[in-house]
């Protein structure tokens, strides 16, 4: 991460940070929901999935940006997809070699990274129009944002659903796990709850600004 900040131009910092909060792929843009909900039943899976997606996102953004003047406009989507699929195949084989346990837990969802709209969206709307460094920094930000969102979902679901975090028991023997949280419905409920929290925070902020303006007007 550090070597990306050699040239801390104001644009670069913003392009990086924007993906984490203001344009968070999962919570704000509602993209890439399938992996975000399907594999976040434990924290470990969430981290693995997040990092795999981060890798594919950065590599494919770099390559798309490099080839942006070569790829004809008519077949660009197909070309992007092939580039993405290549990197996903690499990740798939790499995870298989590194950790069989993680590979089995994630199952087909590693290969389904190809169909993650976050990655194609970045390639189409950002990497095909910007310089290599800029697209890589942006992709890095989006990837971190995606991993962060997955972690938010994964930790909550693991703590509530099995009473553990990264496999370590939190509450002891007497804890009655809330099993539905690690099952499919739990994914929908947890992301719904996070979205509620975020929109509550946003509304509170807006109300505060409105109040300040009113007091400013009253005193002035």
């Amino acid at each position: 991460m550090a070597d990306l900040h050699h040239k801390p131009t104001p644009i670069t910092m913003d392009t990086f940070l924007r993906g984490i909060w203001k344009e968070n792929p999962v919570f704000v843009m509602l993209l890439g929901l399938c992996p975000a909900l399907a594999v976040t039943n434990t924290t470990m899976n969430a981290i693995g999935m997040g990092l795999a997606t981060l890798f594919v996102l950065v590599c494919s953004s770099a390559l798309v940006s490099l080839l942006r003047s070569v790829i004809p406009k008519q077949v660009r989507i197909a070309s992007y997809i092939v580039i993405i699929a290549t990197f996903v195949t690499i990740v798939d084989y790499a995870i298989h070699a590194i950790s069989l346990e993680l590979y089995n837990a994630l199952g087909a969802f590693i290969q389904l990274i190809v169909a993650n709209c976050v990655i194609l969206g970045r390639a189409e709307s950002y990497a095909s129009k910007n310089r290599v460094t800029k697209s890589v920094v942006n992709a890095f930000g989006i990837g971190i944002g995606f991993t962060f969102a997955l972690l938010c979902l994964g930790t909550v679901r693991e703590v509530l659903g099995s009473g553990t975090i990264l496999g370590y028991s939190l509450f002891g023997e007497s804890f009655q796990p809330w099993v539905v949280m690690v099952l499919p419905p739990g994914g929908f409920f947890v992301i719904g709850a996070w979205l509620l929290l975020f929109s509550w925070l946003k509304e509170r902020k807006q109300r505060k600004i409105l109040k300040q303006e009113e007091t400013a007007r009253a005193t002035g």
């Binding site: 419905p185 739990g186 994914g187 929908f188 409920f189 719904g192 979205l195 509620l196």
Partner: peptide, 10 residues
């Protein structure tokens, strides 16, 4: 918006 849709889907 989206929050209530997710709850419904759940």
């Amino acid at each position: 918006g989206s929050a209530i849709s997710f709850m419904l889907a759940g």
